Amino acid sequence: MRASPGGAIPAPYMAYLRVYEPLAAFPAGERAEWEAWLGRNPEGATLAHEQAVSLRALIAVPPIAVPENEERVAYVMRSGDATLLCPWQSRLRSWLALTELRAVHGDGGVRLYWPQAVLDRADSDYDRWWAEDPEALPHILTSSWQIPIRWLVLFGQEDGVLGEGQTLYFRTAMSSARKRCARGLRVLKRSLGAGPLVEAVETLGMWLEEFHPLSVVELDYGGLMGLLVAQGAVGAEEREGGVVMDCSVRLVAEGLAALAEGDDAAVTSAYLRYRVKWDAVRLLARAN
């Protein structure tokens, strides 16, 4: 990853799917702790803050695979008079990320990043933590170098919100995300039968069902929006009036609608436009 002008560290090439829950969703004791934390941090945390914490862990000696303690830190969203929180859950997410790394690179590959003693401690801590809270779920899912199609199913193009710089978000009510997920799953099952995409959308729907019905679901493009622009993957129709808005959500919605109607030509067209957009990013990911 290249440093930006002035030496600032750019946003990582990662996307984030977050669930913001109302304070009422948390148990009474935990809710009181969050209310106290909000009193000190009314604006909540930022992605830049989370990135800085992660970088400090990587350059520590020895490097930190999993934080020793779970800090009470969250992203904050205001929805009318309600305050919604998306907890970082850094320990849980670190353990899950370590599991994914092992699945891809094996134990030998993971030891290139952390000493065996650090990994052994992370494993034993996870076993103890899991025994106490086996039903805990992360409020944040992450994806490197791409935005999974299953995430895009949850949103409509009208949900897009431009942030500062080249930041792009999609935000929708939990009820809408669940409806789109269920509708997309029905179409995929009827048209494709069993398969990896069907299983992935089904698993995502099960994850959504675990949260408060008045939650908000957010897709944060992170550093990927800037990368799409840099790679020339944003078409002229996505730059109207000087505003840059990725249309991947719309392409997935068009593909699902065509699939429901049995229009194979329209399905192929939507999918190819989606692939062309993201192929430049995929090639860069492989080069790295």
Rank of each mutant, 00 (worst) to 15 (best):
S54A: 15
T142Y: 10
V19K: 05
L219Q: 05
V73H: 07
W278Q: 07
G156W: 11
F26N: 03
L23E: 00
L119E: 00
L256P: 00
L119W: 02
Y169G: 04
G106S: 07
V201N: 01
T99P: 02
R190S: 15
A60F: 04
A131S: 12
H139K: 01
S175F: 05
G242Y: 07
G193E: 01
A280W: 15
A8W: 08
D159G: 03
Q116V: 10
A177R: 00
S215I: 02
A131V: 00
M1G: 15
I147E: 09
V66P: 01
Y271I: 12
V110Q: 01
S215R: 06
L168D: 10
E238N: 12
P213T: 01
F211L: 05
V244A: 07
G232I: 02
A97L: 08
S269G: 07
R121T: 02
T142G: 13
R150Y: 11
P62T: 03
R190Q: 15
N69R: 15
V104H: 13
L197P: 12
L85N: 09
T83N: 03
G29I: 00
P213K: 03
I64L: 05
A97C: 05
L272C: 08
G163F: 13
V252W: 03
L168Y: 14
Y169R: 10
A103C: 06
A8Q: 13
R40P: 03
V201M: 01
Q51V: 15
E199H: 09
E71I: 04
M77W: 10
L284I: 03
G205E: 01
A253E: 13
A236L: 15
N288V: 13
R190T: 11
F155W: 09
P62S: 08
G195D: 08
D125K: 02
V110I: 03
Y13F: 12
R78L: 07
L141G: 05
C181W: 01
S215L: 05
C247V: 14
R18L: 14
Y75W: 13
D127S: 14
P67I: 01
Q89C: 02
A173W: 04
S248F: 04
E210A: 15
V66R: 02
A177I: 00
V244I: 13
A32Y: 05
G106I: 01
D120W: 00
C181N: 11
